[in-house]
Design a protein around this nucleic acid. Structure first.
Lengths: 188, 188
DNA sequence: GTCTATAGATTGATAGAC
DNA sequence: GTCTATCAATCTATAGAC
């Protein structure tokens, strides 16, 4: 694996575990096995690294959503996989979605990083609206109310449930909060 | 106002706007009008400050919940006021609930602070369970499903909706995510 | 691309006078 | 309780050799 990718991987783990201000170039250097000055060759400023991180993360999500659509035909099955992304992303209640991790110390983020976060949210919402619409039509999601509200609530539950489960260190807390969604979903 | 309270107030604003690692004793000193060394008299270590902050915040919430119970008799009216706490807490989409703000850079928080966060969550959940139970009985909240799941989802929506609205700087995004709750509530 | 060396700033924290 | 003075550590970032 090339070094730039290794740095991005290490930084992503760090941000999701400790937040943007919770890691330094020194930490990355030790983790990747490189001198900290060398990191500046790949990412001149820390903000360049943040931008690259959030951009890659957003693209990965969008690609994941496309793959979900290709794998499943019903809204319910798609929503089930979406929820699974957030659950497995917790990695033993230690990591948050990068987007959630970035969202706290927001005043230290540049406008470009904020823009990536907004793209992440709006892209998610768009996909969720399509998915709830489909799930309502094909009867794979029950009790669907106002679609826009469903999509917004679903996104909020995913992010909020991650925060709560991370604090309690109990994955069940994620499941309980998500149950309002999962209990309405027919997977097959 | 005594200085200790002024320091707590300033620190709370800072954490909610920029996160725990996003402010320094120097920032507090300038804001309160004191030398930064003097802060150590009131809070020897930064972690003492974090502990005091989260403890006070939790007690304030618990007191607020008691006041809500005293003010309103129906579950719906109580839940309405609860949601309002999180909405108004956003303060123009700039501030997060202290608990949410703390939850990101968690690895830099001591066990005592983590314990306060857990107390905050469990106390909230307990109150929400009582409130949904009441609202279901007195018909002021409609469509109540599994009470534990309702409470967990409500808490997650509040925290997640704050994150999303803060990123987009649109208070409407909070309202849309919360609408799944508010639309089921009869206030009077 | 990676290194050594270093700069300049900021951090949380302490000692001791008043 | 608040101050000045100072500390050691850490941070992001740069210059220049290889």
């Amino acid at each position: 694996m090339d070094r730039k990718t290794a740095l991005l991987d290490s930084a992503e783990r760090a941000v999701r575990a400790r937040g943007y201000n919770g890691f330094s170039y020194a930490d990355l250097a030790e983790d990747v096995g490189i001198r900290k000055a060398s990191i500046h060759y790949h990412f001149p400023k820390k903000d360049d690294l943040a931008k690259a991180l959030m951009s890659r993360y957003r693209e990965t999500l969008f690609s994941d959503l496309k793959n979900i659509n290709a794998r499943h035909k019903t809204g319910g099955a798609r929503l089930h996989d979406y929820i699974q992304i957030y659950k497995s992303g917790l990695s033993g209640c230690k990591c948050l979605c990068l987007c959630v991790a970035f969202s706290s110390g927001q005043d230290s983020l540049s406008d470009q990083v904020l823009l990536e976060i907004q793209k992440f949210h709006s892209g998610s919402r768009k996909w969720l609206i399509e998915t709830f619409t489909l799930g309502h039509k094909d009867n794979s999601i029950t009790n669907v109310g106002n679609i826009e509200q469903e999509a917004a609530a679903c996104l909020a539950i995913m992010e909020g449930a991650q925060l709560i489960a991370r604090s309690s260190r109990k994955i069940e807390d994620f499941d309980t909060a998500a149950a309002q969604l999962t209990s309405r979903v027919y997977v097959q």
